[in-house]
């Protein structure tokens, strides 16, 4: 993402390591670096989460607003993603520098959540043709250390899990105009069912110089990303179904390799989903008395 310069010798070392299934930091090809998640870090939003994957730091805020449905889909709500690469991560993201990357990630997220198996948008409808919920999912990338797609998708899932949408107490049509009352009680909310929300798994392939066949690497560091010519980003639901596949990079792949890669992505995606859900449930059990650290500790 941000250009890390590497010498030929360093690249050779990294690539040989991948081939030997022993990377520069001791991990094997399918291991993730330590991750940490915290939800409800932004109390003024409907839902929020902060996820750290080694040095990669992602902050997500979810806001729910009442909006009018699209005329083509009068019974459905809306879901919109926005990814902002903050200049805090690297000076290259100043001004419009991070816009391309941000658009790429938000498009990938939109693709991943498009399927109706993932999120049934009709659950966000309040009054057909008149009012619906629009969920804005805003991602802020604070630090980059490789593997942005996975980290962003995990943070988004955690934020949506923590999101609390006010309950609609009455929704009537009053002479053609919609009249909606929302519950005043801040604790009277509806939570989203994230049971089928996907996570993104990035698989880095096609390391340069060496034909190493079907070796692909999960959770690449930014140095490893620099050495690879192609990556595949797969959106995997908790039940193993794949909702989107995106290939990035200039390298090319054999079709058989692609199939094997998707199998691997499915296995890893299931484990990743299980991991984040366990963490989120564990956090829930700590209850509302949990101390929220945010950036302070």
């Amino acid at each position: 993402m941000a250009n890390t310069l590497l010498s030929l010798a360093e690249k050779t070392f990294i690539v040989h390591g991948v081939d030997d299934n022993y990377r520069t930091d001791g991990r094997n090809r399918s291991e993730y670096r330590p991750m940490e998640v915290e939800t409800k870090v932004l109390p003024h939003t409907s839902g929020s989460a902060r996820l750290r994957l080694a040095n990669t730091d992602i902050l997500v805020g979810v806001k729910a607003e009442v909006d009018t449905p699209y005329p083509d889909n009068p019974n459905e709500g809306k879901l919109e993603f926005f990814v902002d690469c903050s200049a805090n991560a690297t000076p290259a993201f100043e001004g419009k520098g991070g816009d391309n990357l941000g658009t790429e990630i938000s498009n990938t997220l939109t693709l991943a959540y498009q399927s109706s198996h993932v999120l049934d948008l009709t659950t966000l409808c309040i009054l057909p043709q008149q009012k619906c919920w629009k969920l804005y999912v805003d991602v802020l990338i604070l630090q980059c250390d490789g593997n942005l797609f996975d980290a962003v998708a995990l943070a988004v899932k955690a934020a949506l899990y923590s999101a609390q949408i006010p309950k609609v107490t009455t929704a009537t049509l009053d002479g053609g105009k919609a009249d909606i009352q929302l519950s005043d009680d801040p604790f009277d909310c509806v939570k989203l069912d994230v049971g089928s929300f996907p996570v993104l798994v990035t698989l880095c392939k096609n390391f340069t110089f060496i034909q190493i066949g079907e070796n692909c690497v999960v959770d690449p560091t930014s140095e490893e990303e620099e050495c690879s010519a192609a990556s595949i980003v797969v959106a995997v639901m908790p039940n193993g179904r794949i909702t989107s596949v995106v290939k990035t990079g200039y390298g090319s792949l054999q079709p058989s390799t692609l199939v094997k890669t998707l199998e691997l992505a499915k296995d890893i995606g299931i484990k990743l989903n299980a991991g984040i859900m366990n963490a989120l449930k564990e956090e829930d059990e700590l209850g509302s008395q949990r101390e929220i650290f945010g950036f302070l500790k």
Partner: peptide, 18 residues
């Protein structure tokens, strides 16, 4: 899927102070 295979995600409350 045995335990070693699982991907563990930590919580902030369990963060270690370095």
């Amino acid at each position: 899927m045995n335990d070693e295979d699982m991907i563990r995600v930590r919580l902030a409350v369990h963060r270690t102070n370095t």
